[in-house]
Simulated scan of single mutants.
Amino acid sequence: MTPLPRVGLGGGPLGNYLHPVSDAQAEAVMDTAWEAGIRYFDTAPFYGLGLSEQRMGRALRGRPRSEFVLSTKVGRLVRPGPGDNGGFAVPGDRHVEWDFTRDGVLRSVSESLDRLGLDHVDILFIHDPDRHWPQALDEAYPALAELRSQGVARWIGVGMNQSPMLVDFVKHTDLDLLLAANQATLLRRTAFDELLPLCLDRGIPVIAASLLHRGVLAADRPPGDAPDAAHELAAACARHEVPLLAAALQFPLRHPAVSTVLVGAHAPEHVTTDLRALNHPITPALWDEIA
């Protein structure tokens, strides 16, 4: 597959994750990302129960389609009525339902394209199938492979917060790439044991996401209730005069299997700060100390 950019914008915050973002602010985030050169954008029906897809689609509709890469996900359908909102600050008039059946996947993709206002996406991920392994393997994966062959998506993969099942998917399917969330970070390095070496051996690029542990690693002084390891990492970065954010965002890219990191932004200045951190020089001595 074509190499992905080194950095992409994650769509969770644009779905009002943890706190609301106005439409104008979401548009400003997208505009700032585009002007800064970001050309990979990741979203999902789950993010804001459709809101993130709507906002990203609206911002990208006027951009040249050949100039950006867009990914979304399958596994949750947005349905009317109250229910679980997944921590997103959105009205309680809709909820998500798990569905990894073939029909559910096809319905999910069709609804995503409607929300995005596009006729295709570049990447489709099976999203968080932790409790649905048989159905995801037997129905969702073949459906994505079919959509890939039809050109509805260029590449297919799986996105999860755990490594063991991602390893199983690599061993049992023909995936183009993976999204590993919260497992190739300074504080949680489970992907380095088996997943990343396996992906490197098989030529499967990995996108690393959820790198800051809900903001714990975003500032040079982690909150007082942060894990001891976070404070130790902050102290090491301070000794080497490196922002903790820079180390957190650059750390996954040290492994050759990781092609891309996703950053999230509730405000335009977050995009600028993250990109500056990604380009901050880091000495080998710091990496040696925190390894």
Rank of each mutant, 00 (worst) to 15 (best):
P3W: 06
P3H: 11
L4M: 09
G8P: 06
L14G: 00
N16H: 07
L18T: 15
L18G: 11
S22F: 00
Q25S: 13
Q25L: 10
A26V: 00
E27L: 00
E27F: 00
E27M: 01
A28L: 04
V29A: 00
M30S: 02
D31C: 01
T32W: 00
A33H: 02
A33Q: 01
E35A: 11
I38D: 00
F41L: 12
D42E: 14
A44S: 12
F46W: 09
L49V: 12
G50H: 04
M56T: 03
M56D: 01
R58S: 08
R61W: 00
P64V: 12
R65W: 10
S66E: 14
S66Y: 08
E67C: 05
F68S: 01
V69G: 04
K73W: 08
V78R: 04
V78S: 13
V78I: 15
P82L: 10
D84A: 09
D84K: 08
N85G: 13
G92R: 11
H95V: 04
F100C: 14
L106F: 08
S108K: 02
E111M: 06
S112N: 02
S112W: 01
S112D: 02
L113I: 05
R115Y: 03
L116C: 08
L118Q: 03
D119W: 08
F125N: 03
P129F: 00
W133G: 02
W133L: 14
Q135W: 10
E139M: 06
A140E: 01
A140Y: 00
Y141R: 03
A143H: 02
A143W: 02
A145H: 00
A145K: 00
L147A: 10
L147K: 05
S149P: 06
G151D: 04
V152Q: 06
A153D: 03
I156D: 02
I156N: 05
P164K: 07
L166E: 02
L166F: 07
L166R: 04
D168K: 04
V170F: 03
H172M: 07
L179M: 12
A180T: 02
A180N: 02
Q183T: 11
Q183R: 12
L186W: 06
L187R: 05
L187A: 10
R189H: 03
R189Q: 05
A191K: 04
E194P: 12
L196E: 10
P197L: 14
P197G: 15
G203W: 14
V206D: 07
V206M: 08
A208K: 07
A209H: 11
A209S: 15
L212I: 04
H213R: 12
A218E: 15
D220T: 08
P223Q: 15
G224A: 15
A226C: 04
P227E: 13
A229F: 11
A230W: 09
A230K: 14
E232K: 06
A235D: 15
A236H: 13
C237A: 12
A238E: 06
R239A: 09
P243M: 06
L244Q: 13
L244T: 11
A247H: 08
A248G: 04
L249A: 13
Q250M: 06
Q250F: 05
L253R: 13
H255L: 15
A257S: 06
V258A: 03
S259W: 05
S259G: 13
T260P: 08
L262W: 11
G264K: 07
H266T: 09
A267K: 05
V271C: 09
V271S: 01
T273Q: 15
T273G: 08
D274G: 10
L275H: 09
P281V: 11
I282L: 14
L286R: 12
I290H: 06
A291K: 09
